[in-house]
Computed example of a mutant assay.
Amino acid sequence: MLIAEVSDKYDLSQDTLRYYERIGLIPRVNRNKSGLRDYTEEDCKWVEFIKCMRGAGLPVETLIEYVKLFQLGDATVAARKELLIGQRDQLLTRMEEMKRVLERLDDKIARYEQTIGAKEKALMAHDS
């Protein structure tokens, strides 16, 4: 699959895909006879994984480390697992923080709705 197709499929710019490859965020993509990147199904799985992890807020540096460990083979399975567990724990903490912020926003919005509702009632009573 050419880079334009991968770009469309995963809603990532071609520049982003090239950048991800250049910094080691995704393994090096093979080239076809014309010298164009030719993404395999395995390459696309990496793109999808990285997009998912970045969307969840995992740092680029951590993901680069994960890819390097993966490329070293089965001897790094435990290290990769620990890296992902650490990231999961951080994500859970951020989700709890976001839940508290969401509750606070909901409370603030509810107060504004009460204030606006009370003012509208007062105006309607005044106009009657």
Rank of each mutant, 00 (worst) to 15 (best):
R80H: 08
T40A: 09
E21C: 03
M53V: 09
L12G: 06
R88H: 10
L25T: 05
D127N: 13
L105Q: 14
G55R: 04
I116L: 15
Y10W: 07
T115I: 11
D15E: 14
P59G: 10
Y112G: 03
A4C: 05
E96L: 13
F70D: 12
Q114T: 11
E61S: 09
C52A: 07
L84T: 06
R18I: 01
E96V: 03
A125L: 14
R94S: 15
C44Y: 00
E96M: 13
L36H: 12
A75M: 08
V47K: 00
S34C: 04
Y20S: 01
V6C: 12
K9E: 13
E120G: 02
T76I: 08
E48D: 11
A4D: 14
W46C: 10
I3E: 13
S13M: 03
Y112P: 06
M98E: 09
A122D: 13
E48Y: 04
V6K: 12
M53W: 02
E113L: 08
A79C: 09
Q71D: 06
I3S: 14
E97R: 06
L36M: 07
K9C: 07
L36T: 01
I26H: 00
I50D: 04
L123A: 10
E65S: 11
E82L: 12
K121H: 09
P27C: 11
G24E: 03
K45V: 04
V60H: 05
D127S: 12
L12V: 15
K9A: 15
E96P: 00
K108L: 04
V6G: 10
A78E: 14
D106Q: 14
S7H: 02
V60S: 04
M124G: 00
D38W: 01
N30I: 08
E5A: 13
G117Y: 00
E97M: 11
D8Q: 13
T62C: 12
R100S: 13
K45A: 08
P59D: 12
C52E: 03
A79D: 14
A56Y: 05
H126P: 00
L105P: 00
D74I: 04
D127A: 15
L72T: 04
Y20D: 07
L63F: 02
I50W: 04
R94Q: 15
Q114C: 10
L69C: 03
E82A: 15
M1H: 09
K51S: 03
V77R: 13
P59H: 06
L12N: 05
K108Q: 09
H126M: 12
W46Y: 12
L17Q: 06
L17G: 05
A4V: 02
D106G: 08
V77K: 11
G24L: 08
L58N: 05
L72M: 15
Y20R: 06
N32C: 10
S13R: 01
L25E: 07
G57W: 05
L17H: 00
K81I: 11
R100E: 15
Q90T: 02
V47F: 03
T16Q: 09
D107G: 14
E96D: 14
V6Q: 10
L17D: 04
T40S: 15
D8R: 13
G86I: 06
N32I: 07
L25Y: 01
